[in-house]
């Protein structure tokens, strides 16, 4: 039982378990910088725990000091004194020999939409405009089904059967195709915003917040106005998301 009471062992175990939980139990995996913050908090808390009283603190330090001074721990001491410089030297090597990484593709996630767009020579209002097909409740299912058909014949290759942005062409594209299941995409946007992005695609993105590298085609040449509104209805229906409303002004 003596070993189990060792504060040093407690501290090491807490750190290992915390690290294991942060690494394996958080899904999707947290970025390394976030892990570093979490581990920092855990290390701080561990120190508070072991230094909560002087007995505990001494208990924690004893094995460390023993290793440094006790004659019978000479071999352990020698091993530590040799191992730590080698480890740090190796770490320095990995840092010095690190290869260049591709620069990140920074982008504005949802650029501000224009007030209106030209769609095949017709002006379509974007700001404050709602999906005209929503009023036709009788044909709701029919429009959604038609939208599904348009989706699977045009959009699925990049945005995926499951609308999660993991179509079979997705791996070749950077930035990756939008994931409609993600609450940060269509759930935050009005239907008319989607109309603009589908109709004008990557080439129609605004000049500010460049550089763009979007592979999204401009669908106005291929899909009719009605087909685009139907696809939009399908996106919301298939993901179970709700379109955002325009703020009353």
């Amino acid at each position: 039982m003596n070993v189990l009471r060792s504060r040093l062992l407690h501290a090491v175990l807490i750190l290992i378990i915390a690290y294991a939980i942060f690494t394996f139990a958080i899904r999707p995996p947290a970025p390394r910088s976030v892990l570093a913050i979490y581990m920092g908090v855990v290390i701080l808390a561990t120190f508070v725990y072991i230094s909560s009283n002087s007995d505990s603190w001494r208990n924690f330090l004893r094995p460390l000091r023993d290793t440094l001074v006790q004659p019978e721990r000479r071999l352990v001491r020698l091993a530590v004194v040799i191992a730590i410089p080698i480890l740090l030297g190796y770490y320095a090597y990995t840092q010095a020999a690190a290869k260049a990484q591709a620069p990140p593709e920074l982008r504005a996630v949802h650029p501000a939409p224009p007030a209106s767009i030209q769609f095949r020579g017709k002006e379509i209002t974007i700001q404050g405009f709602d999906n005209p097909l929503r009023k036709d409740q009788a044909n709701l299912r029919k429009n959604i089904a038609a939208g599904g058909e348009t989706y699977i014949r045009n959009c699925m290759y990049c945005h995926g059967d499951n609308l999660d942005g993991k179509g079979h062409f997705a791996r070749g594209l950077n930035p990756p195709p939008a994931n409609f299941q993600d609450p940060g995409t269509i759930a935050m946007l009005q239907e008319a915003f989607l109309f603009w992005r589908i109709a004008k695609g990557g080439p129609g993105l605004p000049k500010e917040s460049t550089p763009w590298n979007s592979a999204m085609p401009a669908w106005e040449d291929r899909l009719t106005e009605e087909q685009i509104w139907q696809v939009i209805m399908y996106l919301y229906d298939a993901t179970g998301q709700q379109p955002r409303r325009w703020e009353a002004s």
């Binding site: 730590i84 410089p85 080698i86 740090l88 030297g89 770490y91 320095a92 090597y93 840092q95 010095a96």
Partner: peptide, 9 residues
């Protein structure tokens, strides 16, 4: 760099 780091440590 690595040997310098190792020696200093």
């Amino acid at each position: 760099v690595p040997p310098v780091v190792a020696v200093l440590t």
